[in-house]
């Protein structure tokens, strides 16, 4: 078994009285594609935000690639996000006044230096070589999600996080995005943690965990690992 990219122990996140995530022990091996499923409000996004260094746990420990996120300062977390993770959102969250190309370059800016050729290559990889100069408003939902993927992988992260990335897409676009993610993962060998409500989407992963009321209730292998 490969080394773990994610290791949590008794990881907890509560908001006052509400315990959004109950003590969780989770281990994700390097290169695994993990799917997180569960009812609305079961704590999926909470878990993902903790893994992405967007939020801090209220208890337990979380380490990603050997780094204990709890020990990182605010700026350390920002550095962790730009160096180690790529995030794909359900609502795309592209900057409306920048073109597809510029949206990807923005991510490069935080990481190191904007490099147009590299950004163009990333968009070509997601099949958008012909829509470089279009703004998000001029792209379809599926296209926007692919820009989002190009932006997430541009700095070669080791961990890709997706919070219902296909939640707003129809069947055809969903399949296209999933195929794209599979191909990219096969080339770049990053790990994926993806939240979804969609059984079909879950089938693309290696393993699925089910959550309910902040607890991990069930776990199943979808493919051999």
């Amino acid at each position: 078994m490969a080394a773990a990219i994610i290791e949590t122990s008794q990881l907890t996140r509560s908001y006052g009285d509400i315990c959004a995530l109950k003590p969780l022990d989770l281990c994700v091996p390097e290169g695994e594609w993990l799917t997180v499923m569960g009812h609305s409000g079961s704590g999926k996004s909470t878990l993902l935000n903790l893994l992405g260094g967007l939020d801090r746990p209220t208890g337990g420990s979380i380490s990603v690639r050997g780094t204990d996120l709890a020990t990182l300062s605010e700026d350390g977390l920002a550095r962790f996000r730009r160096d180690c993770v790529g995030i794909i959102f359900q609502q795309h969250h592209l900057i409306p006044y920048l073109t597809a190309l510029e949206n990807v370059m923005m991510s490069q800016y935080f990481h190191s230096v904007p490099d147009e050729a590299e950004a163009r290559h990333a968009l070509e990889r997601v099949g958008l070589g012909h829509r470089l100069k279009n703004r998000p408003g001029e792209l379809s939902g599926g296209e926007q999600q692919r820009v989002c993927i190009a932006r997430a992988i541009i700095n070669s992260p080791r961990l890709l996080l997706g919070d219902e990335p296909t939640g707003n897409l129809d069947h055809k676009s969903t399949t296209m995005v999933m195929e794209l993610l599979r191909d990219l993962r096969d080339e770049d060998r990053f790990s994926i943690v993806m939240v979804t409500h969609n059984q079909e989407v879950a089938a693309w992963g290696d393993r699925t965990i089910h959550m309910d009321d902040g607890c991990l209730v069930r776990e199943e292998r979808t493919k051999g690992c």
Partner: peptide, 16 residues
């Protein structure tokens, strides 16, 4: 706010 949150999520530090 959303744009700022996004930029931070992408790895922009508070100083950036």
């Amino acid at each position: 706010g959303k744009e700022i949150g996004l930029l931070k999520a992408m790895g922009g530090s508070r100083w950036d």
